[in-house]
Structure formats: structure tokens, C-alpha cells
């Protein structure tokens, strides 16, 4: 059975349980639904774009876990400004 599962690439169920719990617990603890996180991301992109040029598709916002506390981590790569490039 184990061999068979590995052949068809099915994951062990404990791994499923852990992954699913990691996500569920983040949202339970922060009371922040995935949809709210996405809305926040869109608004952040909009605000930041007013000041600096960024690549909206490369922006990622995640909740990172440290023990029982969570932190919001945003990774926002900046684009090299066109004006600079021309100089």
C-alpha cells in the first residue's frame, strides 16, 4: 500500500493534516480570511505604486509563524526606474 501510494505520488495523510492545520490555525488565530488578505494586498499595491514603481505580479504577502505569534510579511520587489535607466 505504501509502495502503491508512493507510485501514484499520493502523500501520507499525516502530511496533509499538518499542512491543512498550519493554514487553518493561521486564519483562526488572526481572524483574517484569505479573501481579506488578498484585498489588503491589492490595496497595498495601489498605495505603494503611487510612490514607487513596483511589479504588481511579484508582490507576495504572507503570514509567518514564530511560535504562537504571527507576523505579516510582505515582499515587494521594486522596479528599476526608467528615468534612472536613461541617465
Amino acid at each position: 500500500m505504501e509502495f502503491f501510494n508512493r507510485m501514484i505520488g499520493r502523500k501520507k495523510s499525516a502530511g496533509n493534516a499538518k499542512e491543512r492545520l498550519q493554514l487553518v490555525l493561521i486564519h483562526d488565530r488572526t481572524d483574517l480570511a484569505p479573501s481579506a488578505l488578498n484585498a489588503m494586498k491589492d490595496e497595498l499595491i495601489e498605495v505603494i505604486s503611487r510612490y514607487v514603481e513596483i511589479d504588481p505580479t511579484a508582490v507576495s504577502i504572507n503570514i509567518a509563524k514564530e511560535g504562537r505569534s504571527q507576523r505579516l510579511v510582505a515582499d515587494i520587489p521594486l522596479r528599476i526606474s526608467n528615468r534612472r535607466r536613461l541617465k
Partner: peptide, 19 residues
């Protein structure tokens, strides 16, 4: 069950609950 990967291990639960 833990051994065959079908039950969360003590380490898994501790990692999730962190207490």
C-alpha cells in the same frame, strides 16, 4: 499509525501548537 505516516506525530502537534 505515526510510523506509517497516517497520524500526526508528537513533533507535528508541538510544532503546530507551540506550547
Amino acid at each position: 499509525m505515526v510510523k506509517r505516516g497516517d497520524m500526526l506525530s508528537v513533533e507535528d502537534v508541538l510544532d503546530l501548537l507551540a506550547i
